[in-house]
């Protein structure tokens, strides 16, 4: 599945990184602990988190994740969005909380 299909199906808001909407999704990782994501997320994963600062983008880039979904309508910091645009890794937001978001993604990807 491509990021843009996920955006449509879950009605996500695209905050930045539009050029990456064609990125291919493989799996999902849900965590707010950065070292946990660094150690365990896989390339192509969707990352669901409530962290919004710039290190989220650094990790998304280093791990080559497909996109980041910020839950509970969180807004990302301006510098985070800038880097997301530069690197084409989309930051998306949802009004749902983590449990619902992960549940819906699980249904779509299982």
């Amino acid at each position: 599945m491509k990021v843009k299909e996920l955006v449509e199906k879950l009605n996500l808001k695209v905050l930045s990184g539009e050029s990456g909407l064609d990125r291919e999704i493989e799996g999902c990782y849900v965590s707010d602990l950065l070292s946990d994501v660094m150690g365990n997320a896989e390339m192509g994963n969707v990352w669901v988190t409530l962290q919004t600062h710039k290190n989220v983008m650094a990790i998304a880039s280093l791990k080559e994740l497909a996109c980041v979904i910020l839950v509970k309508n969180q807004q990302a910091a301006e510098d985070t969005l800038e880097q997301s645009n530069e690197e084409g890794i989309p930051f998306l937001s949802t009004t749902m909380q983590t449990f619902e978001t992960a549940g819906k993604i699980y249904e779509l990807l299982k």
């Binding site: 602990l33 950065l34 070292s35 946990d36 660094m38 150690g39 988190t49 600062h53 290190n55 989220v56």
Partner: peptide, 15 residues
């Protein structure tokens, strides 16, 4: 609060 402090950094290096 930023999501650091899981105590997984050094184990990640080791692995």
């Amino acid at each position: 609060d930023m999501g650091f402090g899981a105590g997984m950094g050094l184990p990640n290096m080791q692995k």
